[in-house]
């Protein structure tokens, strides 16, 4: 068990190193930081809340959009790099189980995304803090404002987003496990991402349907793909005055994501163990 964890750690560390040294990651990180920073220049001010809300929406949008692209592209690229260049052949000829290879790849990629999310959240917090201080000093007395945001909860939100990226990474890995090309994986994963974003429609549909095969089919779709709307809890967490989110609700969302991650990785392993390298 310890030896297995050690091998996963080594594969993950190597995957992380490979990902960090790719220009794609650095470029995307810089673009995202730049985008969040540029939000502060869109100054639509109305009693101190609209501008900050705008920056928050902009920042969270950038984290989700670029994080999703990164989760799909990096996972698919690092997987196919190993397969196409046949470094996987050398690695799997060593005492490495195929599940260790998959989990190592997944962990390495998700560690990269964790850093990505953390850096963007830090930038967002810095910009919000800067703008909030200006707003409070300018209008604080007039509007009787104390603090407008829960800064700590921005990191909790970032953690929830990271779990969402883990789910995206896991279903990309599942597609990688049977796909023959990088492009196919990329396109299919983006399609699945859209389905997950719209999954709530299926969820609402089957709730109103009578029991029957169509309801079963719609229900099956809603089980197969996670509901990504559940992860959109930014406003509830961060804005003072919004209906707050309990710890139990956060744990529920994280648990929901983890179940999908484990299921997708298990299915990916089931495909990959029979794949010819």
């Amino acid at each position: 068990m310890i030896a297995s964890l050690q091998r996963i750690r080594l594969i993950a560390a190597n995957t992380f190193l490979e990902a960090v040294r790719q220009k794609f990651f650095s470029a995307l990180l810089l673009i995202s930081v730049g985008l969040i920073f540029s939000a502060s220049f869109f100054q639509q001010f109305d009693f101190g809340t609209n501008e900050l809300k705008f920056i928050i929406d902009f920042g969270f949008g950038a984290i989700f959009f670029f994080g999703s692209i990164l989760a799909i592209a990096v996972m698919a690229q690092l997987f196919f790099n190993e397969i196409d260049s046949r470094t996987a052949l050398t690695l799997l000829s060593k005492p490495v189980h195929r599940s260790e290879f998959l989990i190592g790849k997944f962990v390495g990629t998700q560690f990269l995304l964790l850093i990505f999310v953390f850096v963007l959240s830090l930038v967002l917090v810095a910009i919000l803090f800067w703008r909030e201080s200006i707003l409070l000093s300018r209008f604080g007395n007039e509007a009787r404002l104390d603090a407008l945001l829960h800064y700590y909860d921005i990191f909790i939100f970032a953690g929830v987003q990271w779990v969402r990226f883990c789910v995206i990474g896991a279903f990309t890995l599942l597609i990688c496990s049977f796909a023959k090309t990088y492009v196919y994986t990329l396109v299919t994963s983006l399609f699945v991402l859209i389905v997950c974003q719209l999954q709530y429609i299926a969820h609402e549909m089957y709730a109103q349907m009578d029991i029957g095969p169509v309801r079963l089919l719609v229900q099956l779709v809603s089980w197969t793909f996670p509901n990504f709307q559940l992860f959109n809890v930014g406003d509830q967490l961060v804005l003072v005055g919004s209906s707050s989110l309990s710890n139990a609700a956060i744990i529920h969302i994280i648990g929901y994501g983890c179940i999908y991650v484990i299921t997708y990785i298990f299915l990916a392993y089931n495909n990959f163990r029979r794949r010819e390298i």
Binding site: L10, N14, L17, E18, S85, T90, K94, P95, V96
Partner: peptide
């Protein structure tokens, strides 16, 4: 393997060490 290709971002030493640790 035939026509081996290894992780180009590692040095020769790092590469051999990586496989040694994997083993």
């Amino acid at each position: 393997p035939e026509a081996p290709y290894f992780h180009s971002y590692l040095s020769g030493y790092e590469l051999v060490r990586y496989y040694a640790r994997i083993c």
